[in-house]
Amino acid sequence: MITLYDYELSGNCYKLRLLMSMLGVDWKTVPVDFYPGREHKSDWFLRINPLGQLPVIDDDGLILRDAQAILVYLASKYDAAGTWYPRDNPALLGEVSQWLAFADGITATASAARLHDALFYDFDVEAARTGAHRLFRILDEHLWFGEQEGRDWICSASHPTIADIACFPYIMLSEEGGISRQDYPAIRRWCDRVKRIKGFTVMSGVFPAGPAKAA
C-alpha cells in the first residue's frame, strides 16, 4: 500500500492525490503539519526527505520525493493502459518531460505568490506574479493552438498525460496568490476538461466542474 506524506493545502501533494484517484489506486495518508508546525523541517521528516519538502511517498519500502518524479513512477507502475506516461512513444515522452519541467516553473512562481499571500512567506511577490503570468501566457497560447488542431490536452495525444496533472493544481490555485486567469480563456477551458476526467477529486480551494453545457 502506498503511504503519502501529505499536507492538505499543498498543490504538489494534490497532484499525487489526483493521479492516484484517477488511476483508482488506494493509498493511506500521513498528515504532515507543514503550516504552522513546519513539520517538513522536523528531524523525523528530514530523515525521510533531506530536502525538507512535500510530497513524499513510500510504496512498499520505495521512498520517493518530488511531485513530478512521483507522477512518473505512479503512472509507470499503476497505469495498465500506459497512457498517462507513454513509455513506448519517445516524442510524446519528450513532450511530457518538457511540460513537467514547466510545471516546476509554475510552482516557483504561482505557488510562491500563494505562499506569500496566505502563509506569509518572505518572497518577492511581484516577481512571482510576473513570472506566473509569463508562463500562463505561453501555456494559454499552446492550448489555444492545440484546440484549433483538435487537441484537448497539453501534450500531442488524444488523452491526458501526467503533464496535465503536474500543471493543473497551481494554475487552479493561482488566484490565492493574486494571479487572475481572466486573460487565459484556453487555460480556463482546459481546467474544465481536467475536472471532467474520470476519478477527478478536489482539494480545498478547487471546486468541481459545473454541469457540462449543452452544445
Binding site: 492538505e8 493545502l9 503539519d33 488566484e175 480545498s204 480551494g205
Partner: peptide, 22 residues
C-alpha cells in the same frame, strides 16, 4: 493528534478562502 485536528479545520478554511476572496 493536534495536527489532525488542525488539518480538519484548515481543510474547511481552505474551502472558504476562494469564496471570501471573490
Amino acid at each position: 493528534e493536534d495536527k489532525v485536528i488542525k488539518r480538519f479545520q484548515q481543510t474547511i478554511f481552505g474551502q472558504d478562502k476562494p469564496i471570501l476572496e471573490n
